[in-house]
């Protein structure tokens, strides 16, 4: 009888926190797998449009990114509210796109240089005029593979 009579009466046993680290580690691993490291600060508003017929960009090392959108609040005074192009960490002119692509291409290893894709991360409120200019620049440097990066979702939401 007395063998099992360990507890003192009236006292609640403490909740075991031994599994807390495990739970936190689980969260940690979740975030480690679904996210990627930030490599450049985005200085433009970048709400991508939605689309359903999307294809995943498989290999990260074969992609060159171009961001387009309105400058964010902190840069508004300097760069205005018109859509701008961001290459790496800097705002740039349309004419700089070609040089940027060539420079990025030269950084990649030789076997990758012909299979590069340019990912256009464009805010959904940007004007097509600027995009057409970028596409024209891309054609000049023969960077013909483009990917209009989007979120997955109903495409009709873009029109609101």
């Amino acid at each position: 009888m007395s063998k099992f009579k360990k507890k003192k009466d009236g006292e609640l046993p403490a909740v075991s926190t031994a599994s807390l680290p495990d739970i936190v580690f689980m969260l940690l691993f979740f975030f480690m797998t679904v996210t990627v490291m930030k490599d450049s600060t985005i200085k433009v508003e970048n709400v991508l449009p939605n689309a359903t017929e999307i294809k995943k960009l498989e290999k990260k090392d074969r992609v060159i990114y171009i961001f387009v959108g309105k400058p964010t609040k902190e840069y508004e005074n300097v760069y205005g509210t018109e859509s701008k192009i961001q290459l790496n960490d800097k705002f740039a002119d349309v004419k700089a796109v070609g040089d940027y692509i060539l420079a990025e291409r030269a950084k990649k290893s030789e076997e990758l240089q012909n299979v590069l894709t340019t990912a256009l991360k464009v805010d959904k409120n940007a004007n097509m005029g600027l995009i057409s200019d970028i596409k024209q620049e891309l054609r000049k440097v023969n960077a013909l593979k483009v990917n209009y990066t989007t979120y997955e979702g109903d495409a009709f939401n873009n029109l609101q």
Binding site: V36, M37, K55, L138, R139, L144, V146, T149
Partner: peptide, 19 residues
Amino acid sequence: FLVTTVIESDAGLNRLLPR
């Protein structure tokens, strides 16, 4: 990890521009 990473979209519509 929460502060240094972002959930990025890496999917979209692929197109080939004309030469």
